[in-house]
Design a protein around this nucleic acid. Sequence first.
DNA 1: AAACTAGGTGCAACTAGCGCAACAGTAGTG
DNA 2: CACTACTGTTGCGCTAGTTGCACCTAGTTT
Lengths: 272, 272
Amino acid sequence: MTDKPTVPSAGLRRDIEILEVLAGHGDDRDADGFGVSWIAQRLGREKSQVSRALRALELEGMVERDPITRRYRLGWRLFALAARTQHARLVQVAAPYLRGLATAFDEDAYLCVLRGNLVLTLMSVPSSRVYHRVWEGISVPLLMAAAGRSLVADWDDQRIRELLRATTLPSGLDSAVSGTEEWLADLAHVRSCGYAVTDVELEDSKAGVSAPVRDHRGLITAAISVSVTRTHAAARLDEIGAAVGEAARQLSISLGLVPDGRPVMSPTEGSL
Amino acid sequence: MTDKPTVPSAGLRRDIEILEVLAGHGDDRDADGFGVSWIAQRLGREKSQVSRALRALELEGMVERDPITRRYRLGWRLFALAARTQHARLVQVAAPYLRGLATAFDEDAYLCVLRGNLVLTLMSVPSSRVYHRVWEGISVPLLMAAAGRSLVADWDDQRIRELLRATTLPSGLDSAVSGTEEWLADLAHVRSCGYAVTDVELEDSKAGVSAPVRDHRGLITAAISVSVTRTHAAARLDEIGAAVGEAARQLSISLGLVPDGRPVMSPTEGSL
DNA sequence: AAACTAGGTGCAACTAGCGCAACAGTAGTG
DNA sequence: CACTACTGTTGCGCTAGTTGCACCTAGTTT
């Protein structure tokens, strides 16, 4: 219909839509699953279709059904598959560094990667302070996360300008984001100092510090970031920045980067 | 064809087969992905079919393709979905306990759940000793893992006998597994002492210690286990057992179990 | 008991996707 | 360079799998 090249996407898209609904917001309290009709309505699809699709998904272990409430939730197979992703390996290696940062400053620490123009959080280590929102698996606009600056640090100016031009933020937030020239200056700062400091972070009242993580080829593949409670640590930002930068550097070395100041490869790679 | 009730399973099964192939053995060095033809041959399917399916999967982010080698690997979306699984929450909560055990005894610690008659490892924390095989996402027969005994500790004798009768182990291993009566005695030991000690573990030359983790309803939902190098710790098994049992108890409380000795609900629930 | 809701099923209609075979790239090999 | 040997993509007719409707069953509320 819409696509000229014929790829078997109809069933797949439906299945993934269903999985995405089952994933919910992540922080929802309604984590005890969802019923068939509810999902069908939310997707604007036939009940019967959803019912059958869910049964098939259950057969494959992609979803699980509570035998008494008859509600569906995400299944074990997703976990089993995801554990063998390249991202899983990254998380495995990065975990100690994140924990180190989180305990050293008692602030939330994150590991993020770039997906299109979104920042996907792979792992978060909570501080000891309050109940911690689950950020894993959540994507946020590039401009809203501290990690964003680090992830595009190697892009050339033109590409950055395009990005900033193309991005439209949810209303009311554009004022919080700095202008194009400031961005370019920030990126220069990342390149020279190894870390970025930003005012805007996932939540309000948080500042952010982040640093790029490079793989064995020297390409930026991830970013470590720490969200800093403003009242606590406005003065400490640079101290934390140095620590985040150092952690990112060490993580990069763990990933096979030769600890050398040599120039990186063409940053034009690594797009979507 | 095979199934009388019509569920949309054809495409789904193919997609999951592909994902499973891409997942590889997990510990493989060939983690740089797989080509279309190779996958097609391994699945006994048409190249064209696999090619198109992979493109659809890539469109949805379930797989990623290296732009230069043109090889596919598992994608970010699996990670994003899995992060919002109930298992992810379990791992999040259990992580500190596992790390505590791993560092306290310098042995590998695992978190496992029951899937059918298999033990699925959700998380593993390596000891400091040697290179650590990645067990996350891997399933092993119930009888081969230390966690197995803990996971079925609440089953009644009849169900255990059925399980033991139904299970056929890979040849050469049946001798290492104790007999039916020993098993039943072991389960009684778990119920009274709170932990199980076994001779057989995932790898040779390892003994295993495990303890059941219960959710808020008192049902066994997971197991913590520690694999102990035989030469090192034959005498320490009971000391470690006590620690594992205590960790499992604390984790259960973190999951909402009221720290009470009250009888659990019907153990007949919680099957596949 | 009717009136609701939530989930599942039977079946004809239809279209998505299968499989073949031909095509386009890329790489060795001499 | 053509020659062989790959791997991956695509056009297209035909069939089988999926869809959507209407009709069920089962549980809960009034």
